Amino acid sequence: MPKNEHDAPEWHTAMKALLPVVERGGPTMFARIGVLLALNRHHVVEFNPKGKEPHWGRRKLKKDQ
């Protein structure tokens, strides 16, 4: 791993979460989350204000007629 990536704080957190798994058989989910966050640290989640479009062709219920 390149030195600049090795020094990234996300990788330090992932390594700290991985050590209890290796040494004492700790929870693997925390290590998995740490590694996934470190791998995807440059991904920016974009907010979509439009959201889900409503389905305008929805049928009415009998009780609403």
Rank of each mutant, 00 (worst) to 15 (best):
R59K: 08
H6C: 09
V45I: 02
F30W: 15
M1H: 00
G26E: 11
G25A: 11
K16D: 03
V44M: 09
V21R: 14
R41L: 01
H55R: 00
L61T: 11
P9A: 12
L19P: 01
D7R: 08
A8I: 05
G34D: 03
W56S: 12
E46N: 07
V35Q: 03
P54R: 15
V45K: 08
L18V: 14
N40G: 04
F30P: 13
P2R: 12
W11V: 01
V44R: 14
D7S: 07
L61M: 09
R24S: 15
D64A: 13
D64T: 15
M29F: 02
M15Q: 04
V22K: 01
W11E: 11
H12L: 12
E10L: 10
R41E: 03
P49I: 14
A14I: 06
A14W: 08
W11T: 01
G51C: 01
R32L: 14
H43D: 11
L36P: 13
M15I: 13
E53P: 03
V35N: 05
P2L: 10
L37E: 12
M15H: 12
H12R: 15
K3V: 00
E23C: 13
R24Q: 10
M1Y: 05
Q65P: 04
N48H: 11
A17F: 10
N48M: 14
K60P: 06
K60L: 14
K52Y: 02
M15S: 11
V45H: 07
A8E: 11
E53W: 02
L36N: 15
V35H: 07
R24D: 13
K52E: 12
K60G: 05
V44F: 06
M29W: 02
D7Y: 04
H55S: 01
H12I: 04
K62A: 06
E46S: 06
A38C: 06
A38T: 04
H12D: 12
W56I: 10
L36I: 02
A14R: 05
H6P: 00
R58K: 04
L61N: 05
L37D: 03
L36Y: 06
F47N: 08
R24L: 11
E5Q: 08
E53I: 00
A14G: 07
K60S: 09
F47G: 05
E10N: 01
K3F: 15
L39E: 03
N4K: 05
K63Q: 00
G25M: 05
H12W: 12
R41T: 04
A31V: 15
D7W: 04
E46Q: 11
